[in-house]
Structure formats: C-alpha cells, structure tokens
Simulated scan of single mutants.
Amino acid sequence: MTSARQWAATIALAVGIFILITIEELPIGVLSVMAPDLGVSEGVAGLAVTVPGVLAGVVAIFTPVIAGSLDRRLVLVLALASVVVSCVLSVIAPTFAVLLLARLFAGVSIGLYWAVLAIVAVAQMPPHRAPRALTIAFSGAGAALVLGVPVASWIGTHLGWRTAFAVVGCAALLVAVLIAAVVAPVRTSTPVSMRMMGRAAAHRGVRHALVLTALMITAQFITYSYVSPLLHSRAGVPLTSIGGMLLLFGVAGMIGNFAVGTVLRRSAPLGVLVIAAGLALAILVLLLVVKSPASAFVVMPLWGLFAGAASVTVQAFVSSEGREVVEEGTALNSAVFNVSIALGALIGGRILDLAGQEALMIASVVLLAVALVVVARYLRTTPTHV
C-alpha cells in the first residue's frame, strides 16, 4: 500500500522539476525586456538559454561519479540550491556577462536534478508503482510549460525581469526544504565510476535509449524552437494569440504525460514507438494542413499530447531496458536529452535561415521516421516486448 508520505514525496519531486524547467525557459519569456536593460541584442540574449542546456548535459554525465555514495535526495537539494544562487546573481546582474555567469549555475542545477530524478522517484514507491511514480515526477515538466513559464513571463513583463528571477529563487528555496523533509533517502551501494558509465553506454538497452532520445528530442526542437514565427507567418495566428496556442500545447502535454503511463506499464519500447509515431504525424499534419488559425487550434493540442509524453517515455525505456545500469543510464540519457534540445534549436535555426519553414518540419519528420525504424527493430529483436 502506498502511504501519504510516499505520494507527498513524489509530488515534491514534480514541483522540483517544475522549478527547474521554469528557470531553464524563463529567459525566453522575458527576452524583450531583459535584452535592452542589459544592453545586448535579443539574439545575444538567447545565449542565456543555450549555455545552460549544454552545461546541463555535461554535468548530468558526471553527476553519478561525483556524487559517489551521497544520498541522491541531497543531490536534488543541492540542485535547487544552485537555482537559488543563479536567481540571486540574475537579480543583481549589472551586465550580461554576470547574467551568463548566473546561468551557468542554472545549467549545473538542471544537470544535477535530471540525472537523479528518475532514480529518486522510483525509490519513493513500491516496485509495481514505478511507472506511476515516473509519470507524476515528470508531470512537473509539463506543468512548468503550462503555468510556470507563462506566470514568470507575466511577472517579468509587468513587474520587471529581475522580479521574475527573484520569485523563482524564493520558490526554489522552499521546494529544497520540502524535498529534504518529505523525500526518503536514496543511496547507491556501489559508487559509480567513469568505467561504469562506459559500460552503461555500451549496454544494448541504454544504447538504444540514447539514440532514440537524440533522434526524438532533436526532431521535436528543430521545429518547436521556432513555433512562434511558424504559427504567425504560416498559419496567420496573431501575435497576441500565440500564447494561447502554446497554452493549449502545454495542457495537452500534461494529459499525454499521464495517459502514456498505460502503455508504459505494458512496454516502454512500445511507448516510445507510439510517441515517435504521434510526433511524426503531428508535425506532418502541421506541414500539410495548418494554413489558418483554426487549423492550428486543432493541431497544436495533438502535437502537445505526444510531445508532453516524450521525456517520461524515453526515461521509462532506460529504466526498463537498462535495469542493471539504471543510474548511469539515466545520467547519460539526461545529458543527451539536454544537449538534444540545444542541438535541435541550433540545427533548426540554420535550416530556417537557409531553406525556410517547410524544410524545418520535413527535417523533424525524417528524424522521427529514423527513430521509428530504430525502435521497431528493437521491438522485433527483443522477444519479451513482442
């Protein structure tokens, strides 16, 4: 039987990732007011998002090795403490250089938290509730896109971007205390070494998970990173309505995050197959059908439904197919996930400049088609999942 404390602990972990996603994406929402205040262009200010993503990937790889036998719950607390430091530096930043320094702390926090979140979440619940624990913990990511980022952006545009960072910093401090109080300690019996990380990377299940994460997340962010100009110029959505479209996307993403749990309880690889196919279908429909605000209104929730389930699905693949090396595999997957976000935005920007919006979506669909081939082959050659 699952106790109230176990549920509270899992929800606390979800609130933690809510804070992390909010701080990661916050500069996007306050870019137009932050850039002129710091005396830089919006393009340069965009580094405030790119830099933490790349650093998060590096930190995630080394987190299990550096943490050693340290209680993984404390790693989460340290991650949120790093958010507090990042927010304090952001509030007082006199120049963009200091803001970038602050964003380095945000990158560290993201890498630390993502690397151990799944392990701590699963440990809070009985084994048969592991998929449920993952879906609840990762629901915080979708909730941040639906509520956290819009609210922080509203604060930034109405009360000042520094106030937005201050509010997120205070929230991070409170959640750090909450996690320390209600989350059960999680320790590893054998300290992780870089050699063990290498063995995890060579593990068949983990290796496939990393490839699938790279393909799916890069594909998603090649197009999603530029969804605002795409909706405005291609579908004729007014600038004032784009926020509503993204809200629809986010709400559908939260629904997808929980709905996919039914499939994951049967087979995580099957879940990846469903999500990759759904993303490919949604972006293909976006390419072929979306020509008006009404069509965008229909397609954005469809896209969000599958996009919102991507993170929990690829993590479930690691947890189920790499049980022997789950902590190392989770760290590697976290690294690939965060780097793929930055890579998708970078590739998408180049494609957009050189070939236009249609090429952007075609590139995403092609990568997702490759992901479908990879996961279908894995299912076919792994009898337990047939």
Rank of each mutant, 00 (worst) to 15 (best):
S3C: 11
A8G: 11
A8K: 00
I11Y: 13
I19E: 00
A48D: 09
V49R: 06
P52Y: 12
L55S: 10
A56S: 14
A60M: 10
V75G: 03
V84T: 15
G107L: 00
V108E: 05
L112V: 05
A123K: 13
R129P: 09
R129D: 14
P131G: 13
P131F: 08
S139R: 05
P150L: 07
P150D: 07
G156Q: 06
T157G: 01
R162E: 08
L173H: 11
V175H: 13
L178W: 12
V183Q: 11
P185Y: 14
V186Q: 13
R187N: 13
R199N: 11
A201C: 03
A202M: 12
A202I: 10
H203D: 15
Q220P: 05
S228H: 04
R234Y: 01
G250L: 01
L270N: 11
V272I: 15
V274G: 14
V274I: 15
A276S: 15
G278C: 10
L287P: 06
A296F: 01
V298D: 08
M300R: 10
L302H: 03
G304H: 07
L305I: 01
G322C: 03
E327K: 04
N333E: 07
A342T: 10
G348Q: 03
G349I: 14
I351N: 00
I351F: 02
D353G: 00
L360T: 01
I362V: 14
V365N: 07
T381R: 14
